[in-house]
Design a binder for these strands. Sequence first.
RNA 1: GCUCCGGUAGCUCAGUGGUAGAGCGCUUCCUUGGUAAGGAAGAGGUCGAGGGUUCAAUUCCCUCCCGGAGCUCCA
Length: 636
Amino acid sequence: MIQVTLPDGKVLDLPADSTGYHVAAAIGPGLAKAALAAEVEGEVVDLHRPLPGSCRVRLITERDPESLELLRHSAAHVLATAVRRLRPDAQIGFGPAIDEGFYYDFGVEEPFTPDDIEAFRSEMEAVIEADFPFERRRVDKPEARELFSDDPLKLERLEEFDDDEVITVYRDGPFLDLCRGPHVPSTGHLKHFELLSAAGAYWRGDERRQMLQRIYGTAFHRKKELAAHLERLEEAKRRDHRVLGRELDLFTTDARVGSGLILWQPAGSVIRNEIEEYEKELIIRHGYDIVYTPHMVSEKLFEISGHLENFKENMFGAVEVEGTRYRPKPMNCPGHICIYQAAQRSYRELPIRYAEFGTVYRYERSGVLHGMLRVRGFTQDDAHVFCTEEQVPAEIHALLDLVDEMLTTFGYPYSIELATRPEKALGSEEVWDRSIAVLREVLEERELDYTVDEGGGAFYGPKLDFKLIDAIGRNWQGPTVQLDFNLPERFGIEYIGDDNERHRPVMLHRVLVGSMERFVGGLIEHYAGAFPLWLAPEQVRILPISEQFSEAAQAYVEELREAGIRAELADRETLGYRIREAELRKVPYMGVMGEREVEDGTVAVRRRGEGKKQDVLDRTVFLERLLQEIEDRALA
RNA sequence: GCUCCGGUAGCUCAGUGGUAGAGCGCUUCCUUGGUAAGGAAGAGGUCGAGGGUUCAAUUCCCUCCCGGAGCUCCA
């Protein structure tokens, strides 16, 4: 007999060869049916795996978050089972669960067609219907070699195991896979799944290796959850900034200009300009100095900064003028350092904070370019803080204030990640530890939640990464704050301390929006194109009921413009048509003016997305409300 | 960069080895309309670019450019 301790502290006495299933059965028939796996001494294992002896056991059902990963991993096996049935020659690669689903990689002569995918989907249904149990078996290396003698990819993986390592295989019906597990008990547990896409993927992510065909899918315990997930994907598609960008005339690209280069149309430029004006006001209030540096500089600068050494493959090529080679800058920091070095600095001046909307150019491989989100030319809201080591905590505090104010304004919740010393790092361990400790202390002082990305810092310093969460729950790269132990050394920057000696200042890099292009692209998706009033390219559209009121409407448009409101008149076609147009254009407010309004000095105000609900307001009152909403940068 | 898919009117897309269509948009006219499409007429295309095969290429083949799904990488 063994003693099994349950999470609530209860202890069960069970026969020595019991499994998680027996534990569940001993608790009750409902649980025996619902259990998908067991957590034994903290490790998730198959439900039918014998317990190692007396132990702590927690049963995992579909209520537990871990179970989704199990389900999806098993779904990947079901997919492979189906593929192998229809295409016995397909080599099998890896098939893990991922964040939102699963994939499986196959080596085939010809890429899969949509018809193939559909066939696999149907075949998966059959595999599920058959309800094959997932059977785990330990094997040694020679036996494994035998089992996978027809699967070169599995054999390659197999050779990476140490001789004494535990190797397990899983079988479900006809399909056998080299796999660590665990799995759900049988294929029948997979009820709600969908295959989503197929694309090429290099074996082991190495572009020099064979290209496999990867099929992506997802799976859920409940039909409703699957439907909700698919709906979320649809919603993401509807919000696609490339589609909205064209519909709303925000930005465009042109083959004659080049890939990865964004042309900001007037409407998009309004948004960008509003953001820049807001940020300028914000950072000037926070003690920053605005600077400008050239787009192209002598290559020598990048020799000093080390970019030519470490970043060359991301830099545009040089142009030679009168014997000097110039390059478009990939980063703004070297220029800012030169401004710092334009004069001898005293500790009395520090901290010095230089900010620039600096446009940088980076070579990106054509395949990674994506709308405004991944481009070759972009403008960073870049800033560099030069300060003494003692001033660092105060600077970090100030930055956290700045970040919070900024992200709150745009309506983004966010999370914080602290990235620490990587393997290959510059500067002494002691300096690193001290800097990380400073960052940590500031975060803790503020009682902010954060996660640690162990070893995720740049080689030249630790950083804080802020992750934005958008309106449909997706994560975006947000602000970053980065300590730099490298550039101050390379440039030999100094200040004179109160001891009249030369000292090396600490340098912080920081961006808030990061790249204007990426940020605005993200905002388009976050707001689904319906920008809050302060950012809306067109804020108010005035609609006279008929042309006989056009003059009065035009006069009101002028009045609004006079007050700084971006207002337009729409007086052609029918009223219904114009309302529809304004809604599709996502103009925040429509103001209807007919006989009554013209006589009364009012306007019938209709808010975007609120249908017929409207207020008849005194025109001056409406204007004041608009101004207030803009001043507040209200989100609604 | 690589694999696959795509590029036809401003936009979304149909179509064909015998030089082309729809809807929306645009222009003009009629309509002067009270809250998500009033009516009519018209203009608009070197079918991504170049080369090849063919009596004939938008259609088939090759190269290139641009875009998409991914791999890898990143702000």
